[in-house]
Amino acid sequence: MSEGITVRRQKRKSSHTKWKLCFFLTLVILLMVIALFSEQLAPYDPYEQNLMEAMQPPSTKHIMGTDQHGRDMFSRVLVGGRTSIFATLALVAVIALFGTVVGTLCGYYGGRLDSLVMRISDVCLAFPGLVFAMAVAALLGGGISNAVLALAVISWPKYSRVARSQTLALKTAPFISAARLSGCGSNQIILRHILPNILGPILVTAMLDIGTMMMELAGLSFLGLGAKPPVAEWGNMMSSGRSMLQMYPWVVLSPGIGIFISVALFNLLGDTVRDYLDPRNSRSR
């Protein structure tokens, strides 16, 4: 009797996670589609100035109002989203890939290279990320690609740490010995047996990192080290509106809503992916 109840509860919980995953995945895909087709979707040209209509509060004509140059905020938030979201995804993809490759190789081969790379990554992890990124971005000059590069330089060690520790744990597993006895070389063992097994934790780290990275990119842009005006990007839109916060709050709030919605969505998706991949969450695979 009681056993029946626990079984049912577990089953309900796992199907609940699946449902949540589908829901958030749909929303994130929707967000990305909107960002991708933002130029077609935007009701106005995001770069067209109309000083006659500057600083309009939200109305039916401009649902998020207009900024100091009379540009429609809603259109700018949409188009800005494309810059922010895709720059963030590119950034996370680059650091996850690089960090995983470095971490797996270090974990697998060990030795002096491993010590050296891990000390470098210790330094990166100990240093405040945004401060370092600011320094690098300032050195490279503005522009969204330089901001991505600056954040990538400081953020990859997180992935190499995860990949390395997972690889170390797997390296001594009997199935790796068995693969070696089956005649697999090191490359085959890494590609066929280690990488597929460490992908779960890496994916979860990456999903949870998207929100943080989006904030940091927006942060760099806010400080004037990322996307340069007039390019619409949430961070620099907030920056250019900050002096008018008290009089015309919508200029800051509109991109803020954009950041809030996308960071929240990516974080919720990351959480759900983590729950879904949790080994305790029994699933057929």
Partner: peptide
């Protein structure tokens, strides 16, 4: 059980 790759 651990002598087989869990993903294969």
């Amino acid at each position: 059980l651990t002598s087989f790759d869990p993903r294969r």
